[in-house]
């Protein structure tokens, strides 16, 4: 199980998100993407999901070129959670989570009892099992975010791509979500997430990719790549580094 990115050029509306990007992720590893607003983090994530085309380079998922997958095969292997969810029609929380089974079901198949059980388990993992029958349009921003993650769990891909999974979450749910994501990784899946908190990124992810907004980037072990100098360069803001219990904490000045 692996994701191999080689010489990847990604741009959006003529603006380069990254040039000649290389990294490799294997089973049980996680990567965090950091960068300023508009640096192209979401575009890169969508490219890795096969939803945006790269200008050059290649993406290999499980040793096979990404664009050689059919859309259905790809949906069985990689899950993608966008920044925001819009619900135009009424649906219950359980129904919304069950949507994740779509790529695993045949054209005429209906969701089975096992699928429902799996969906309920996923809801329990994000603490929404009590709200299973609630209308999705009545959820708060944070609850909706957790439901999106539950839908992803129901899809059960081998590569998880999450765009700001902690947005709208309060502190305890943010930490619970990070714990859940860590469990996914320790089960052998691969995880790539866009985050805005360098301290959480450094503590909870194996690798980090910093995107500087002009197409340049830095990638490597999170504990090495995320440091005072790189963060000041990344965000263009002075950062204070605090050494506590042989570990570093970064706070903006």
């Amino acid at each position: 199980m692996s994701l191999d990115v080689r010489h990847l050029d990604v741009s959006i509306a003529g603006h380069a998100a990254c040039r000649d990007l290389n990294f490799r992720l294997t089973s049980g590893e996680s990567l965090v993407i950091l960068g300023r607003n508009g640096a192209g983090k979401s575009t890169l994530l969508a490219t890795l999901a096969g939803l945006h085309s790269a200008d050059a380079g290649r993406i290999m998922l499980h040793e096979q070129l990404l664009f050689n997958y059919t859309q259905r095969e790809l949906a069985q292997q990689r899950g993608y959670c966008a920044q925001q969810q819009h619900d135009a029609f009424a649906a219950t929380v359980l129904e919304t989570a069950l949507i994740g089974r779509h790529p695993h079901l045949g054209r005429w198949a209906w969701e089975s009892e096992q699928d429902r059980t799996a969906a309920m388990q996923a809801l329990a993992k994000v603490g929404l099992d009590d709200l299973a029958e609630r209308q999705v349009q009545t959820l708060s921003g944070g609850e909706r975010q957790r439901l999106a993650i539950a839908t992803l769990l129901v899809q059960s891909p081998s590569l998880y791509l999450l765009d700001e999974p902690l947005s709208h979450l309060d502190l305890n749910h943010a930490m619970a979500t990070l714990k859940l994501l860590n469990e996914i990784v320790s089960n052998g899946q691969m995880l790539i997430a866009v985050l805005h908190d360098p301290n959480l990124a450094r503590r909870h992810f194996d690798q980090a990719l910093l995107m500087f907004g002009d197409g340049t980037w830095a990638c490597g072990p999170a504990a090495e790549v995320i440091n005072q100098d790189s963060l000041e360069h990344l965000y263009g803001h002075p950062i204070r580094s605090i050494n506590n219990h042989h570990d570093y904490w970064f706070i903006p000045e």
Binding site: T70, A75, Q85, I99
Partner: peptide, 12 residues
């Protein structure tokens, strides 16, 4: 009906 991006991510 759940949205274009969600649909594309789920293989539609």
């Amino acid at each position: 009906s759940r949205g274009e991006i969600q649909a594309a991510a789920l293989g539609v």
